[in-house]
Nucleic acid binder design. Structure first.
Lengths: 153, 153
DNA sequence: CTATAAGTCTACTTTAAATATAGACAATAC
DNA sequence: GTATTGTCTATATTTAAAGTAGACTTATAG
């Protein structure tokens, strides 16, 4: 389960990428458009900035902008900014140095080996999809469903 | 991140499957062997029983036994007993009926579409590996590392 | 039929993390 | 210099996980 932070981040980025007529976005506007608590979004956008995904300018006329083209931002990079490495078990996380306290032999632990595979499968998908892909996919799905409805009429 | 419950469950099952000379296991013995808090393990084994993975008998001479051969128990089934469906986002979970509160159109939500793929990739791995596979893999890794050490000497 | 050995159930406590909020601070444009 | 906007620090709230305690039930042995 990914956190709300990650989901809000993806929503905010999706909104910014989708609204291509605007260059810069106010926190308050994004919050309202996507239904995200403003103060919470504040911290989220800051994290995205610190991860090089967004850039910002203070003062009047300022706001947040995408630091890269949507085709160059992977979903994996966004999610990792909030969830750390995407390890399904603690002992696979490199950032959290906490290993299994009671694992007799971590190197040959079957659980760890299997979870590594599963975690990699999960991460590969997110790393292979960009923000642009995500929007395109959503749009494709919208049109596909629209056609089904048209056909039904 | 999977919970300790799932990890403890896999440890307990691994222990039972590995210790093939015994038929029946006491909670206390498993707890001690695998370093799991006994009272906590109690609840975990019960859940495994309710999911048809273990069977039990009360009274003297009783204890827990594997309800199926290790080759017929998938890691996915074990983990699902504790984590529910392995949905990476709430709106993909069928058990938790809570959908995204602020998703304008859930059917075409790009986040949901991408996360569905990632979640499926994760689940596929766990569903394709059995308890027997896990033990075998661990043993294989143990021997491989042993050889490397021998060679180094 | 009683004593004992096991699993089962209910309730609670503790701990930690996620989520969210408040308010002061800093930078920039005009 | 003042209004606008992002940034930072601190705190509150809520929720779930992790762990514990103790009474209850079922079965076996003798």
């Amino acid at each position: 389960m990914i956190s709300m932070r990650s989901k809000y981040a993806l929503k905010a980025l999706g909104y910014m990428a989708r609204t291509s007529d605007k260059e810069s976005f106010l926190i308050a506007d994004i919050a309202q458009a996507e239904g995200i608590p403003k103060k919470f979004l504040e911290a989220i956008l800051l994290t995205l900035k610190n991860n090089g995904i967004l850039s910002s300018r203070k003062g009047p006329g300022g706001g947040y902008s995408l630091a890269k083209a949507p085709a160059n931002v992977t979903i994996g990079a966004v999610v990792r900014a909030f969830e750390g490495d995407l390890a399904p078990v603690q002992c696979l996380s490199e950032s959290t140095s906490a290993s299994c306290p009671e694992c007799s032999d971590e190197d040959t632990c079957g659980i760890k080996l299997v979870m590594a595979d599963a975690g990699n499968a999960f991460a590969s998908v997110l790393d292979s999809v960009t923000l642009a892909d995500m929007l395109q996919r959503s749009e494709f799905e919208r049109q596909r469903r629209q056609q089904v409805v048209d056909f039904a009429i």
